[in-house]
């Protein structure tokens, strides 16, 4: 069973990303949207944490939130729009949104 974890809180003021990374399985993936895309802020400590997991972490980022914040997608991550978000929610067995 695989889970798509969805985060929307800024990782700089919140514990959700840390907790999520701790329990993320090899078949699972992470979708960042809203303020959670600040995780891709260049030269940040959070980005370093993600980069350290780039070999195993399946990372998706909602494109509109990157564009709004003038952030760039990472070479090893995948930028998605809403139709692709819908596809991801079907591809994975369940979706766990960290509300």
């Amino acid at each position: 069973m695989s889970t798509l974890h969805v985060l929307s809180h800024s990782p700089f003021s919140d514990t959700r990303l840390g907790s999520c990374l701790r329990i993320l399985g090899t078949d699972d993936a992470l979708l960042l949207c809203g303020d959670a895309v600040y995780a891709l802020q260049p030269h940040s400590s959070i980005l370093k944490t993600l980069e350290a997991k780039s070999d195993t972490l399946k990372l998706f980022v909602l494109e509109e939130d990157l564009l709004a914040r003038n952030l760039e997608c990472l070479p090893w991550a995948t930028c998605v729009d809403y139709p692709r978000f819908v596809e991801l929610s079907i591809h994975y067995d369940k979706v766990n949104s960290w509300l």
């Binding site: 809180h9 809203g34 303020d35 929610s89 369940k94 979706v95 949104s97 509300l99």
Partner: peptide, 8 residues
């Protein structure tokens, strides 16, 4: 599928 939205 159940999809939840919330938070910011």
């Amino acid at each position: 599928r159940l999809i939840c939205f919330g938070g910011p």
